[in-house]
């Protein structure tokens, strides 16, 4: 079974370390404590990319390492591929009015 790793208890994403993961396949998400759960992947996920391990509402923080790595730019379902197409950085944004 393909493996995905969750770094921190609070994380709502996990990183998939397997080549050739396409929509509909199932990966095993493991955390540091050794607990694991199987999640069905939505979207094709390249090696080293992330999937959601929980539903994430648009505007809510995406959490990895137990910290915010940005915000969901639209609703993200559990298992869905998470990357620049559905999340945005919130730092260094000279294009945003409030900085």
């Amino acid at each position: 079974m393909a493996l995905a790793l969750k770094v921190d208890e609070k994380d709502n994403v996990a990183t998939v370390f397997e080549n050739g993961i396409v929509s509909g396949m199932t990966v095993t998400v493991r955390d540091k404590a050794g607990r694991s759960e199987d999640i069905k992947v939505i979207g094709d996920v390249p090696y080293g990319h992330k999937i959601a391990v929980k539903d994430i509402e648009a505007g809510a923080p995406v959490i990895k390492y137990g910290e915010s790595i940005g915000a969901a730019s639209r609703d993200i379902a559990r298992g869905e591929y998470v990357h620049v197409h559905n999340m945005v950085a919130m730092r260094g944004r000279g294009d945003l009015a409030e900085g």
């Binding site: 990183t15 390249p46 090696y47 080293g48 990319h49 992330k50 995406v62 910290e67 915010s68 790595i69 940005g70 998470v82 990357h83 620049v84 999340m87 945005v88 950085a89 919130m90 730092r91 260094g92 944004r93 000279g94 294009d95 945003l96 900085g99």
Partner: peptide, 25 residues
């Protein structure tokens, strides 16, 4: 930010993004 641009054009780099890093954070 003083240039008025979004840092995402340069950081993370295109290679970082292809490698799965979605944001500077």
């Amino acid at each position: 930010m003083s240039i008025g641009e979004d840092m995402r054009g340069g950081q993370p780099t295109p290679g970082n993004i292809a490698g799965g890093l979605s944001s500077i954070e």
